[in-house]
């Protein structure tokens, strides 16, 4: 979908987008020439179509996605970062930061769960190495 300013025949630019609310996305387009604005309001079917593609919506979305941004951020709150449930060392957090956003919340949960099962009260690089040793990783 593209938007054209009927007043001056200039392609409109996405000005801002709001995350889905009650199944609808609100996106405001603006003409860079005459600053005419319009709002696009999606219906639930259209919202599903976009969210199922796992893409980001909003100005500069492609750049954010390329930088490893979570595709669902601002779109669906399901992959929301949960707070840490046990202490992590700086080094362990640095290592976690190296994996894509998309899998990080799940990785964090599973490592904490593993650490607890192994009787640790802190997640360190040693805990991760222990897991790698145990599971041949």
């Amino acid at each position: 979908m593209k938007f054209l300013c009927v007043v001056c025949d200039t392609p409109m630019r996405l000005e801002r987008a709001e995350p889905p609310k009650d199944g609808s996305i609100t996106a405001v387009f603006e003409c860079p020439e005459c600053f005419h604005q319009i709002a696009m309001l999606t219906n639930p079917m259209e919202t599903q179509a976009v969210t199922s593609l796992g893409v980001q919506i909003g100005p500069g979305a492609a750049e954010r996605a390329a930088a490893g941004g979570c595709p669902f951020s601002g779109m669906i709150n399901e992959m929301e970062e949960k707070p840490l449930r046990m202490p992590w060392t700086r080094e362990a957090l640095d290592r976690l930061a190296k994996i894509p956003d998309f899998v990080r919340p799940m990785a964090k949960d599973s490592i904490e769960q593993f650490a607890r099962q192994q009787g640790h009260d802190e997640v360190s690089e040693q805990v991760m190495d222990e897991a790698r040793g145990l599971f041949g990783m």
Binding site: K2, L14, V50, P59, A61
Partner: peptide, 8 residues
Amino acid sequence: GGSGIVAQ
């Protein structure tokens, strides 16, 4: 217009 959905 900005989101680059196809590019993504």
